[in-house]
């Protein structure tokens, strides 16, 4: 089966007073039909901008997609006129935004907001749309959905608002869903409910999912494939078992070692392994490999040339001079 989403050499830049921020800097990525791809990486590495690029919602100015192709079911989204994109958004591709409160309209009842999406994209009548909206709210586990549909966003808890966002994102049975930190603001028990919900709906509707999170545990549980981003690059991508059991990139290895794991205290002195230093300022990137100044296995070539993302074993790619 061909991949549902294929991103090729995508770059999205922001022009700021202090220079050009290369938020997404030549990214290659692939999502197989029916899979969940988890994207991990430190704050500011470009995860949200990548998702916004796929939706063609990067604020412009200051942002601009400067190069690349985004193939969705084989067609390049970047070649579509805005008109066409508007029909795709919310219907064939939908997004759950990082901030649920800011993406729900505070002055409309939540049932009406879900129904509105359905009227717009599915051409349902008001009554039908309302009926389907209530069904969607029931599906995402909102108790007494007929009553709660009349609530305004502020009358719901954070977990419930997040579920409303998911109901909206799934109401038109999209082919692809981009979920940007859908559970980060939530407690573990509610987070678990939401992840199960996404899994269940995925099975029922057959949607492929891009799941953005900096919580590696969430990716291990919910995704089949994983990509790790660093300063605008994808530095490693592969099947989730491979990424966790035999990570290749020194950054991925460092991330895996720095998570505290229950029941496995680090031996000896009890200290966690750490990656020294911090993420580089995107305006003052080092030459060559962006990770080299924090890398324990740095070599002379790393300062000279940028490594390319290369496939090491089928489906498992890494962007590092160690593997060339």
């Amino acid at each position: 089966m061909p991949p549902i989403l294929q991103i090729k050499n995508l770059s999205t830049h922001f022009e700021t007073a202090r220079g050009t921020v290369k938020a997404v800097d030549g990214v290659d990525l692939c999502v197989n039909e029916g899979d969940t791809l988890g994207i991990a990486g430190e704050s500011g590495c470009g995860k949200t901008v990548l998702a916004l690029s796929v939706m063609r919602l990067v604020p412009r100015p200051p942002g601009r997609i400067v190069s690349g192709r985004i193939l969705f079911e084989g067609e390049d989204l970047l070649a579509f006129p805005e008109e066409e994109m508007r029909r795709i958004r919310g219907k064939r591709i939908s997004m759950i935004f990082q901030e649920p409160m800011s993406s729900l309209n505070p002055v409309f009842r939540i049932g009406d907001q879900v129904a509105e999406t359905l009227r717009l994209h599915e051409g349902l009548s008001s009554a039908e749309a309302h009926h389907r909206a209530v069904e969607m709210l029931r599906l995402v586990g909102i108790p007494a959905p007929e009553t709660r549909a009349r609530d305004y966003p502020h009358q719901m808890s954070g977990g419930m608002r997040q579920r409303v966002m998911i109901a909206m994102a799934l109401s038109c049975r999209p082919r692809l869903m981009l979920a940007d930190e859908p559970t980060t603001a939530l407690d573990v028990t509610i987070q678990a409910q939401i992840l199960e919900l996404i899994q269940g709906l995925k099975r029922e509707v057959g949607t492929s999912v891009v799941l953005i999170t900096h919580d590696l545990g969430v990716i291990a549980e919910a995704a089949q494939a994983a990509a790790v981003m660093y300063a605008g690059w994808v530095v490693e991508q592969g099947p989730v078992e491979r990424i966790f059991s035999s990570p290749l990139h020194p950054y991925t290895v460092g991330l895996m070692n720095s998570i505290p794991r229950i029941g496995r205290r680090p031996a000896g002195n009890g200290y966690l392994n750490v990656i020294p230093g911090t993420i580089p300022n995107l305006l003052e990137l080092p030459s060559g490999c962006k990770f080299r100044d924090r890398c324990a296995r740095v070599m002379p070539v790393c300062a000279e040339k940028k490594p390319a993302l290369l496939e090491k074993t089928p489906g498992h790619s890494v962007r590092c001079w160690l593997y060339v």
Binding site: S157, V188, A192, G217, A220, F244
Partner: peptide, 25 residues
């Protein structure tokens, strides 16, 4: 028990047996 079973484990081989809590806080 529910809290501990709900912790996502960074280990794809070990699917957690999750205990459910119902509803919100």
């Amino acid at each position: 028990q529910a809290l501990i079973s709900a912790i996502p484990v960074a280990d794809p081989g070990r699917m957690s047996r999750r205990l459910r809590t119902r509803g919100d806080v």
